[in-house]
């Protein structure tokens, strides 16, 4: 189908974009379009105005500001995936970005778009939650920053209000951490049935710190804190990790759909967590 008609704006600055959003009641932001476009084509949404962020250069690119890596919201997955500084300081992000969709989707789809879209099955949200990233939001009253854990509010909903934009994501550095993204799906291009993002810092053979995030185990991405705590101080061995990973599904309420029920997802969460942590620790 062909989308319903709309007025199109392609601002070249964030301020201009924000002004457009303020001006128009029924406006939708277009980033990479890889989630929005199908929605428009199926006419599940028919906004009157589309504000395309594609020409705002300031929103693109990755920089290192010393303490953190700063990823512009409009940076495509393919760029994130291949970026050497991300590979060095936040390997988990490179791995998860590479696991998204397919090459064409990764050429267009954006880091910020994926987070703003807040699909519970998406790959990146669990990663930014696990890594305690900060989401930098710009609105009519200027900028505000929220932690990733507070950004996601529900299925397709975030703390962003209609006149705000996600402009950049600040990721603390995890230099020297091991990382693994374990995505379980039925076919290659599919979104995960469950995915586990794990990063660990080893001290000798012992896990000194761990970060574990879960995708599609609830309406929002989940940080498996029980697992993280159980891992600290443990040796990176199969038995120790297995015991910790058994707690992966604690407190989750995963969905039931064609690909599995909640019980299966809880089981998967612990199996995949074990595998992800072991791989991250280089023991997989």
């Amino acid at each position: 189908m062909i989308p319903a008609a709309f007025d199109y704006y392609a601002p070249t600055s964030v301020d201009e974009a924000l002004a457009l959003l303020r001006e128009h009641d029924d406006a939708k932001v277009l980033a990479g379009g890889q989630s929005l476009m199908p929605v428009l084509r199926l006419r599940l949404a028919a906004p009157e105005v589309i504000v395309d962020l594609g020409r705002i250069e300031a929103l693109r690119g990755i920089r290192d500001d010393g303490e953190a890596l700063v990823i512009g919201a409009m940076t495509p997955h393919s760029v994130v995936q291949a970026d050497p500084s991300i590979a060095e300081h936040a390997k988990l992000i490179s791995l998860a970005a590479a696991a998204i969709g397919d090459p064409q989707v990764r050429h267009r789809g954006t880091f910020g778009g994926s987070l703003a879209h807040a699909d519970p099955a998406a790959d990146l949200p669990a990663v930014v939650v696990a890594l305690d990233a900060e989401m930098v939001i710009q609105g009519p009253d200027g900028r505000r920053t929220v932690g990733a854990a507070d950004f996601f509010e529900g299925v397709f909903t975030t703390t962003l209000s209609e006149d705000e934009l996600l402009v950049e994501i600040r990721v603390p550095k995890y230099t020297g951490w091991g990382a693994h993204y374990e995505k379980f799906s039925r076919v290659a291009q599919q979104w995960p049935i469950v995915a586990v993002a794990a990063a660990v810092r080893l001290d000798g053979g012992t896990i000194a710190e761990a970060r574990v995030g879960l995708s599609n185990m609830g309406s929002i991405p989940i940080r498996a804190t029980a697992v993280e705590q159980a891992l600290v101080g443990q040796p990176a061995t199969a038995e120790a990790v297995r015991a910790a990973a058994a707690r992966a599904a604690d407190g989750t309420s995963p969905p039931t759909d064609l690909n599995g029920d909640a019980e299966y997802r809880r089981h998967l969460a612990s199996v995949l967590t074990r595998r992800a942590v072991l791989s991250a620790a280089g023991a997989g």
């Binding site: 379980f184 049935i193 064609l258 690909n259 599995g260 299966y264």
Partner: peptide
């Protein structure tokens, strides 16, 4: 034979 069915 989905993973879910095999697991069940």
């Amino acid at each position: 034979c989905t993973p879910y069915r095999v697991w069940k």
